[in-house]
Design a protein around this nucleic acid. Structure first.
Ligand SMILES: [Zn+2]
Ligand SMILES: [Zn+2]
Ligand SMILES: [Zn+2]
Ligand SMILES: [Zn+2]
Lengths: 134, 134
DNA sequence: TTACAAAATGTTATATTATAACAATTTAAC
DNA sequence: GTTAAATTGTTATAATATAACATTTTGTAA
């Protein structure tokens, strides 16, 4: 049984903000939003983000430099992440597909590397944006 | 038959530099290296990089903000990229595995999104770095 | 319950990555 | 040759992220 991670004050403030956001948040947008709660400097935000990523409560969407709360119970999956990104409305969803994660976790390339982590980002158009175009 | 893309002067200079580099290059490192060849401003570098990415001659390693020349004949594959990244020595290799690319190109999630592109980054330890640790 | 170490915080400054805005020049197509 | 598109040149600035150092809080164990 894994010990429950209690978040520190800044970590909790920033996690709450990200967790209730319908879209990925950028670091300076987070900073702007938490200034009223006493977090004044970029470094305070980045330190909390680093920790939250490390413990799997949030993920960084690398292609967008933005952060999203984990949708998948946050335990082990932070080392095996997949996202779908709509290039029109920028909606981002964490993909939770065991077939996909099994395939990628088990993937071995001929180069002899030992993988312990992956991050996959799919790009395309979401349902809404497809129908808007018709 | 796709028309041969002739690169412009700046594009060629920057592509040559990236292509002969054994490791991914960052934009400002590129800038520093091409200043003797007349490219003086960040924007000149970023414009060339954007174009080279667009036509598939190079790829951006999103987790590293760095650029690598395409190893896979550069035609169609720029919409289906996969890389292996050693977290110890930072060696990056483009993965060319048709099983993997078929699996991911054909991947359909239950969310109804239409994907036209993906980028996958695997992290781990390369052979050399594994043996160094023993 | 104190003493120690680890983690988190606060703060200022600075480094790194990337784009806006506008003018001029080169290239390619008709 | 004329025109449109692409590329280049240039200055300034926006956006993202870390260095360095001092202090405080928290957890652990003697
Ligand atoms: Zn997750
Ligand atoms: Zn959409
Ligand atoms: Zn490639
Ligand atoms: Zn290595």
């Amino acid at each position: 049984m894994r010990k429950m991670q209690n978040l520190s004050k800044n970590q909790q403030i920033i996690f709450d903000l990200i967790d209730k956001s319908p879209e990925p948040l950028k670091a300076y947008s987070i900073l702007f939003n938490v200034q009223k709660r006493g977090i004044k400097a970029p470094l305070q935000v980045y330190r909390a983000l680093d920790k939250l990523v490390e413990i799997g409560k949030i993920h960084k969407i690398e292609s967008r430099n933005a952060f999203i709360a984990c949708q998948n119970s946050s335990c082990q999956i932070s080392k095996a992440t997949a996202f779908s990104i709509c290039e029109s409305c920028e909606k981002v969803t964490e993909i939770n597909n065991s077939n996909l994660s099994k395939y990628l976790t088990g993937f071995k390339d001929k180069n002899g590397m030992k993988y312990n982590k992956y991050n996959l980002e799919f790009f395309g158009l979401c349902k809404k944006c497809i129908s808007k175009k018709s």
